[in-house]
Amino acid sequence: MTSSAKERVVNMLAGLGEFAFLARDTAASLLRLKVTWRDFLFQFYSIGVESQAVVLITGAFTGMVLGAQTYFQFHKVHMDTATLAVVAVSMCDELGPVLTALMVAGRVGAAIAAEIGTMRVTEQIDALRTLATHPVDYLVVPRVGAAILTMPLLTMEAICVGIGASYLVSTRLLGIDPAYLWYNALHFAGDADIVIGVTKAVFYGGIISLISCYKGMTCGQGAEGVGRATTQAVVYSAITVLIVNFFLTLTLGKLLGLL
């Protein structure tokens, strides 16, 4: 192994170690409720309310496209009325949580990394520490707590809007009978699908916020450092969500008896 490759491996392992310590400190601080309601509500608003437009548009158009594509294929085998069932299961299990997570990673993850990164390079985090305030308590815990709580809500919103939009496209545009459409959707999509979607969303909220906080708190110097940290926060969050999604799908499917 060349020295530069060795250095990269060592840096990667050191980074993973630092990330694990940050996750441990955050969990300990969350459990001790070392967060003020004011900070938490501000982050709840910033992550939840300000993501509304992104989540609504993503949910609606994903549902509509999925509905149309499913209809195109199912129409060939005269299964038109199963369209909404496919959309409902897909939106609940996979597309709702994953696409919401990717959109939130782009909007919220970038904002978190840029804000905390800028605070780091302008010595504001050092100032926090000299004012006897732990940066994890003040910066990380409110963001992670708010993200873990808001992500399931945003995901459910995207799922509902997606299914609703698909229903409208199926009935108004494609002319599918609404009664059979609903009957099949309710028959094939069940509580387990909602549990899977919400559980995944909780994980993704934690992943996105923790990675973004970590990237902000360890960013390099200057504008270049902040820019690089912001990009890495979005890319690493998105990749981690996609990888974790595979394992969560298998694990939750097994636990809920779908496999």
């Binding site: 605070m119 302008t122 010595e123 504001q124 050092d126 100032a127 520490r129 000299t130 004012l131 006897a132 305030t133 732990h134």
Partner: peptide, 23 residues
């Protein structure tokens, strides 16, 4: 560690070169 230092830091006030005000 960082949490133990919080108690000691209550004795300190620090003025930074860049002021480091929370913007």
């Amino acid at each position: 560690n960082e949490r133990q230092l919080l108690r000691v830091r209550q004795k300190f006030g620090m003025v930074f070169q860049s002021a480091a005000l929370f913007d």
